[in-house]
Simulated assay, not measured.
Amino acid sequence: MSALQEIVETPPIETTPKKYMALGTYASVVVVVLLCAAPLIAKNFVIFQMTMVLIYAIAVLALNILTGGSGQFSLGQSAFYALGAYTSAILMEVFGVNYALTLPVAGGICFIAGYLFGLPALRLSGIYLALATFALATAMPQLLKLHYFEAWTGGVQGLVITKPDAPFGLPLSQDMWLYYFVLVVSMAIYVASVNLLKSRSGRAMMAIRDNEIAASAMGVDVALYKTLAFGVSAGITGVAGGLGAIAVQFVAPDSYTIQLAIALFLGMVVGGVGWLPGSIVGAAFIVFVPNIAEHFSKGLSGAVFGLILVLIIFVLPHGSRQIAYTVQGWFHKLRK
Rank of each mutant, 00 (worst) to 15 (best):
I7N: 11
T16F: 05
K19Y: 14
Y20M: 12
C36T: 11
A37C: 11
K43E: 10
F45V: 14
V53Y: 08
L54H: 10
A59I: 07
N64Q: 04
L75N: 07
F80D: 10
L83N: 07
L101A: 15
F111W: 10
F111H: 06
I112A: 15
L116M: 13
F117G: 02
S125D: 05
A132N: 01
H147Q: 15
Y148K: 13
L159F: 04
P164K: 12
D165E: 15
D165W: 05
F168Q: 12
L172R: 03
S173G: 15
Q174E: 13
W177K: 07
V184Q: 05
M187I: 15
A188Q: 02
V194M: 01
N195R: 15
L196P: 08
A207K: 08
I208K: 10
I213Q: 14
M218G: 03
G231F: 01
I236C: 01
I236F: 05
A240M: 04
G244N: 06
V248T: 15
Q249A: 13
Q249G: 08
L264S: 03
F265V: 13
M268I: 09
V270I: 14
G272E: 03
S279R: 08
G282N: 09
F288C: 00
N291P: 00
G306E: 00
V310R: 02
G319Y: 07
Q328I: 06
G329M: 06
H332C: 04
